[in-house]
C-alpha cells in the first residue's frame, strides 16, 4: 500500500499537531516521567518534603516490598493479590464469559428481544460511575435493598453484602458493569461469521454446543484474545469499586487503584504512591505491548489476505 498524494506539507503537519501535542505532552507524557522521578523521592503534600523533596533512591520500592510489612494489613502484597483475583474472577470469568454467553444467546432471539437484552446490558455499561455506585448502594441495602427483598422472598437469609462480602460484591459489580463491551465485541465477531458455515453444521445435525465449540470459537479466537487483554487492562485500573466500598471494610476490597489513591491522597505519601503508580504502569505496559503486537499481526494477516 502506498500512501500517495495530497500530502500536507511537513510544516503544516507540525502546526496541526502542536495543540494536541502540548496537551498530551503536559498531561500524559510528562506525568509518566514525573511519576518515575517522584517515585525516587520522599515528596509529600505538606511540610518540608513538599517544597524540598529529597532523593531517596529505591527506598519507596524497598518499602513496598519490605518483607516485614508486605503482607501486613493494608499492605501492598494483599492489595496486589486481591487485584489479581479481582481480574481473574470479575473480568476473565465474569465479563468475558458473560459477554460470550450473551452474544451467543442473543443470536437466537428475535430482533426486538435482542435489542431489549442488549439495551439492558448496555445500560449497565454507559451509566455514569456514581449513578451505578448509588444504584448498587440501594440494591444491596441490608434492610430494604432489592436484592435482599428478593432473597427473603425466596426464603434465603438476607445479608449486608457490602460489609459481609465486599470482595464478592465488587466482583459481581464489575462483571455486571463491563459485560457489555465483551458482548458487543463478540456480537460483532459472530456476525462476521458467514451464515453458511453454521448452516452447513445445521445440515449435518450439529447441536448448538457443538457449533459453538467446533466452528464459532476457533473462528473468533482473535477477538477473544483482544477482548481478554483489553478487559484485563481496564479491570486492573478500574477505580469505580471505590464508590461502593471505598476499599473496605478493613481492606477487604482494597484493589490497587484504591490502594494507590489511599497512599497518595489520604496519607499524602506522594513518593510511595508514585512508586506504586510506576509498578502499575509497568504492568499496563506489558499488556499494551501484547495488545499492539496482536493488533499488528492481525493487520498484517488482513493485508496478506486482501
Amino acid at each position: 500500500m502506498s500512501s500517495r498524494g495530497a500530502k500536507v506539507s511537513s510544516r503544516t503537519g507540525v502546526a496541526f499537531m502542536t495543540p494536541a501535542a502540548l496537551l498530551i505532552g503536559l498531561f500524559v507524557v510528562f506525568p509518566f516521567f514525573w511519576i518515575i522521578a517522584v517515585s525516587f523521592s520522599n515528596r509529600s503534600l505538606l511540610g518540608a518534603n513538599a517544597l524540598h523533596p529529597q532523593f531517596v533512591g529505591l527506598k519507596n520500592y524497598l518499602d513496598l516490598f519490605d518483607p516485614a510489612t508486605f503482607w501486613g494489613q493494608g499492605g501492598f502484597g494483599p492489595s496486589l493479590w486481591l487485584t489479581i483475583q479481582f481480574v481473574v474472577f470479575s473480568a476473565l470469568c465474569g465479563q468475558v464469559l458473560l459477554g460470550l454467553v450473551l452474544a451467543w444467546i442473543s443470536r437466537e432471539l428475535s430482533p426486538r428481544a435482542k435489542s431489549l437484552l442488549h439495551g439492558i446490558v448496555m445500560l449497565a455499561w454507559i451509566l455514569p460511575d456514581v449513578v451505578v455506585g448509588f444504584a448498587w448502594f440501594a440494591y444491596l441495602d441490608r434492610d430494604a435493598g432489592t436484592l435482599n427483598q428478593l432473597l427473603r422472598g425466596l426464603n434465603f437469609p438476607a445479608a449486608d453484602f457490602l460489609i459481609e462480602h465486599p470482595f464478592l460484591t465488587i466482583c459481581m459489580f464489575n462483571a455486571w458493569r463491563g459485560a457489555a463491551f465483551s458482548m458487543m465485541l463478540f456480537d460483532a465477531a459472530l456476525q462476521s461469521i458467514p451464515p453458511s458455515y453454521l448452516e452447513t453444521a445445521d445440515v449435518v445435525g450439529a447441536s448448538s454446543w457443538q457449533k459453538l465449540r467446533d466452528i464459532v470459537l476457533p473462528l473468533i479466537r482473535g477477538h477473544i484474545v483482544t477482548d481478554l487483554i483489553l478487559i484485563t487492562m481496564w479491570t486492573f485500573n478500574v477505580f469505580t469499586p471505590f464508590l461502593l466500598t471505598a476499599g473496605g471494610p478493613s481492606f477487604e476490597s482494597d484493589i490497587l487503584p484504591i490502594y494507590t489513591y489511599r497512599i497518595a491522597f489520604k496519607s499524602f505519601e506522594f513518593g510511595k504512591g508514585a512508586a506504586i503508580g510506576v509498578i502499575v504502569m509497568l504492568i499496563n505496559l506489558a499488556f499494551s505491548l501484547a495488545y499492539l503486537r496482536l493488533a499488528q499481526r492481525g493487520l498484517r494477516k488482513k493485508g496478506k489476505a486482501a
Binding site: 511519576i35 517522584v38 485500573n237 477505580f239 487503584p257 489513591y261 504502569m281 499496563n284 499488556f287 499494551s288
Partner: peptide, 11 residues
Amino acid sequence: SVVSGSAAMVP
C-alpha cells in the same frame, strides 16, 4: 494505555 487515571493521579 499505560498512563491510566489512577496511576497518574499523583503527578
